[in-house]
Amino acid sequence: MAKLHERKFVSADPEKCVGCSVCEYACSMVKEKTYNPTKARVRVIRLGPLVNLAVACRLCEDPACVAACPRDALSQEENTGIIVVDDDKCNGCGWCIEGCDYGAIMLHPERKVVYVCDTCKEEGKPQCVEWCPEEALDFVTADVLAQKARRNAVKKLFQESQEEPTEK
């Protein structure tokens, strides 16, 4: 049985993300066979020139979207953590959208049911990650993210401690 920390999701590094939205276009190309960011499962937010980040489903534990659905249209795959939408049950009411803290689940503009990142299960790996020109996107587990953060923190500490004497 898969453990939570083995679930991989698409994560963007705020240091590297430049807000170019190549991921949105790649997503719509792969999933919808067209170019249309309003049909992308990953979305970019630019709050200002220095604040850019792509956001996609985080595959939460006890996902709020699943809990919020009054029609049992959403479920979470045990192994992968992917949120599965039953298009026949979904009526586009949007409770799941309100439930999601990340804006990662959205109403499809044409099909009028919700849709969400499935980590390109069929394609083998997330295509946005493949296309990201800045290598800002990663397909990782929460555990690996934590490892990365720790490594960076330690690197920074050491850099600072090494820089200090030379500056004086």
């Binding site: 430049v18 807000g19 170019c20 190549v22 276009y25 630019r46 850019n52 020109p133 800045e134």
Partner: peptide, 19 residues
């Protein structure tokens, strides 16, 4: 220069944001 950002669909990014 604090960050270099990019336009939609671009794979090179060139916007040198100076603060």
């Amino acid at each position: 220069v604090k960050k270099i950002i990019g336009c939609a669909t671009c794979a090179m990014r060139c916007d040198h944001i100076a603060v």
